[in-house]
């Protein structure tokens, strides 16, 4: 997976990263490039620095330090020599790469009338490597199914960053749109029409409008579209059963979610939050949770690399799983029982 990003790296960084041992390279989740500071990679949650010859080290002195030129070349290659075509993304602080990878950016913000107009002098890059993981959502799916398997509950997935939200939601799109249900799920799920609003091209990693990740046979993807507007467009024109979007949080998102709920469309959304209480402190999420827009709220946690449900809440915020029970088998019964009223 690392090969797909080394193509855009300037020569010194490319030579360091291509010399990583194959097992390490397969596990890299983030490559962090900061001008004048040590080159760092994240393997799951462990950070290591990388020397110019591709050896992992904990010593910042031995690590390769990307130069100003490295950063300049990296930005040039990331934007296909055309920074001006990516102004919208730069404003939001990231660049989408082919293959669903995303590059988070840090630099000097140019502010106009109190709003960020652009990032200049970009000196920090976080290359997040997208991995398709079929089956990542299989353990979670049973909690989201309605009684009788007719459909899926409107669901909010909560987790801090880097816990696998996007991986899970991508796999959910695939499972819901394929129908039938994964192995081990007794209730059969009817195939659903799924609409994905993929604002940052992370869920489906579309190239010219066609998903490169498997998001299922009955899935429509609106690529690169702002979420709120995209949700409204899809509700009006694509008659979806389920609407999927990543990282909601802006006030206009709430309007669109409520609109969908009133139109009888199920939504499966993610948001950044460490717990249900955290989520309730965010105005947009609080409004949605208080309005009962979500029949299920799941708290995702990564355990041994796999995203699992750490807690499941019903529409009223009551916890549905026996606290602390982490095994999917144990919880699926609880979810079935607790879900009777939803």
């Amino acid at each position: 997976m690392l090969e797909s990003i080394t193509a855009v790296l300037p020569p010194p960084l490319r030579s360091a990263l291509t010399r990583l041992p194959a097992q390490t390279a397969a596990l890299v989740e983030e490559v962090r490039i900061r001008e004048g500071r040590p080159l760092e990679i994240y393997l799951a949650e462990d950070s290591s620095f990388v020397t110019p010859t591709g050896v992992l080290t904990s010593s910042a002195e031995a690590a390769y330090r990307p130069t100003r030129d490295d950063c300049r070349i990296l930005l040039d290659l990331l934007t296909e020599h055309s920074v001006y075509t990516r102004e919208e993304e730069l404003k939001k602080g990231y660049l989408a790469m082919a293959g669903g990878h995303r590059v988070g950016l840090a630099g000097r913000a140019v502010v106009e009338q109190g709003k960020v107009k652009l990032l200049r002098d970009i000196a920090g890059f976080n290359l997040r490597i997208a991995r398709e993981w079929k089956g990542a959502a299989e353990a979670i799916l049973p909690y989201l199914l309605e009684e009788g398997g007719a459909g899926v509950h409107s669901t909010l997935l909560l987790s801090p960053p880097q816990q696998g939200k996007t991986t899970v939601i991508r796999d959910l799109a695939r499972l819901l749109s394929s129908g039938g249900g994964p192995a081990g799920v007794s209730r059969r799920l009817a195939p659903l029409k799924v609409a994905v609003v993929d604002e940052r091209s992370e869920i489906a990693a579309c190239v010219r409008g066609v998903p490169t990740f498997d998001v299922g046979p009955r899935t429509d993807v609106l690529d690169g579209c702002p979420k709120a507007e995209g949700m409204m467009m899809m509700i009006r024109s694509l008659s979806p059963h389920v609407l999927i979007a990543d990282e909601i949080g802006r006030p206009e998102d709430a309007e669109a979610v409520l609109e969908a709920a009133h139109a009888g469309i199920r939504v499966v959304l993610t948001a950044h939050a460490g717990s249900l209480e955290d989520a309730k402190r965010r105005p947009v999420l609080r409004r949605l949770l208080e309005d009962g827009a979500f029949a299920r709220t799941l708290l995702l946690r990564r355990t041994r690399g796999a995203p699992t449900a750490a807690a499941i809440y019903g529409r009223d915020g009551r916890r549905l799983d026996p606290a602390g029970a982490a095994s999917p088998a144990g919880m699926s019964g609880a979810a079935g029982g607790g879900g009777a009223r939803c």
Binding site: H81, V83, Y84
Partner: peptide
Amino acid sequence: SLGVSDREDQ
């Protein structure tokens, strides 16, 4: 400067 900045700058 070719390609490395926003439209206004270009």
